[in-house]
Amino acid sequence: MAVADETRTIFVTGLKNAHAMENQALSIMKPQVSRIENYPEVATRLEAHIRETEGQIQRLEAILSGLSESNSALKDMALSMGGSMAAISHSMAGDEIVKNSLANFAFENYEIAAYKSLLTIAELGNFPAATAGLKANLDEEVAMADWLDHNLRSLTMKFASLKEAGAPAKI
């Protein structure tokens, strides 16, 4: 296999993995947002990021289609199931909102790394048509990670305050 073919294979595999990763993100965020009661600012931001993630999936599908490829249904299903299990496990925690925020921050940074890698492969493999969509996805992930980073302190303080007051602080 020629070097250009190897680079294309790496790129397509990365795109399929990113598509599955974004489906996993949806399977994590949707249950979270449906359970939030005392943190409307978190629910609002998660709802917005769910819409962004749906757009990211569409961008990835367009990039794959432009390469005459499609997503991997098996990868999508496997990672979605994993995301659902993670969401279920957090729902049993007394500090669910805090655990979700920590996990979301970690996942956003994973997504950022994935898109930076994909952009590098797009450059190496000379796939300029993919750059704008990947950069848009990266920018949205960076914005979400920044939001989580800037709101973790106030969310944790609100959680502790509600717990101290005897109010339901879990979600």
Results as ranks from 00 to 15, higher is better:
Met1Leu: 06
Met1Ser: 14
Ala2Gly: 11
Val3Asp: 13
Val3Thr: 10
Ala4Leu: 14
Ala4His: 12
Glu6Ser: 13
Thr7Cys: 05
Arg8Pro: 03
Thr9Tyr: 08
Thr9Ile: 07
Thr9Gly: 09
Phe11Pro: 00
Thr13Lys: 15
Thr13Ile: 09
Gly14Ala: 06
Leu15Met: 09
Leu15Ser: 06
Asn17Phe: 07
Ala18Arg: 10
Ala18Leu: 14
His19Gln: 12
His19Leu: 15
Ala20Phe: 02
Met21Gln: 11
Met21Tyr: 02
Ser27Thr: 10
Ile28Trp: 02
Met29Asp: 01
Lys30Gln: 15
Gln32Ile: 06
Val33Ser: 13
Ser34Leu: 08
Ser34Thr: 10
Glu37Trp: 00
Asn38Pro: 03
Asn38Asp: 13
Glu41Asn: 01
Val42Lys: 08
Val42Ile: 14
Val42Ser: 09
Ala43Gln: 13
Ala43Asn: 09
Ala43Trp: 06
Leu46Gly: 00
Ala48Met: 08
His49Thr: 08
Ile50His: 07
Ile50Cys: 09
Arg51Met: 09
Glu52Phe: 09
Glu52Lys: 05
Gln56Val: 06
Gln58Tyr: 05
Arg59His: 02
Leu60Ser: 04
Glu61Tyr: 00
Ile63Val: 15
Ile63Arg: 09
Ser65His: 12
Leu67Tyr: 06
Ser68Leu: 00
Glu69Val: 00
Glu69Phe: 02
Asn71Glu: 13
Ser72Gln: 02
Ala73Leu: 10
Lys75Ser: 10
Asp76Ser: 13
Ala78Lys: 13
Ala78Met: 14
Leu79Val: 01
Ser80Phe: 09
Ser80Pro: 04
Met81Asp: 02
Gly82Phe: 05
Gly83Thr: 04
Ala87Glu: 10
Ala87Ile: 11
Ala87Trp: 09
Ile88Lys: 13
Ser89Lys: 14
Ser89Asp: 13
His90Thr: 07
Ala93Ile: 07
Ile97Phe: 04
Asn100Gln: 13
Asn100Phe: 12
Ser101Ala: 10
Phe105Tyr: 15
Phe105Ala: 15
Ala106Ser: 12
Ala106His: 11
Phe107Ile: 07
Phe107Val: 04
Phe107Lys: 12
Glu108Arg: 09
Glu108Tyr: 08
Asn109Gly: 08
Asn109Lys: 14
Glu111Asn: 14
Glu111Ile: 03
Ala114Cys: 11
Ala114Ser: 15
Tyr115Val: 08
Tyr115Trp: 12
Ser117Phe: 10
Ile121Phe: 07
Ile121Trp: 05
Glu123Asn: 15
Asn126Met: 05
Phe127His: 11
Pro128Arg: 14
Ala130Trp: 00
Ala130Ile: 01
Ala130Arg: 01
Ala130Met: 05
Thr131Trp: 06
Ala132Lys: 06
Gly133Thr: 01
Gly133Asp: 00
Ala136Tyr: 03
Asn137Met: 02
Asn137Pro: 00
Asp139Glu: 15
Ala143Pro: 11
Ala145Arg: 05
Asp146Pro: 06
Asp146Trp: 02
Leu148Pro: 08
Asp149Cys: 04
His150Thr: 07
Asn151Asp: 02
Arg153Ile: 05
Thr156Arg: 03
Met157Asp: 06
Met157Leu: 04
Lys158Asn: 01
Phe159Gly: 01
Ala160Cys: 07
Lys163Trp: 06
Lys163Gln: 15
Lys163Val: 07
Ala167Tyr: 01
Pro168His: 13
Ala169Cys: 13
Lys170Thr: 13
Lys170Cys: 07
Lys170Gln: 15
Ile171Asp: 13
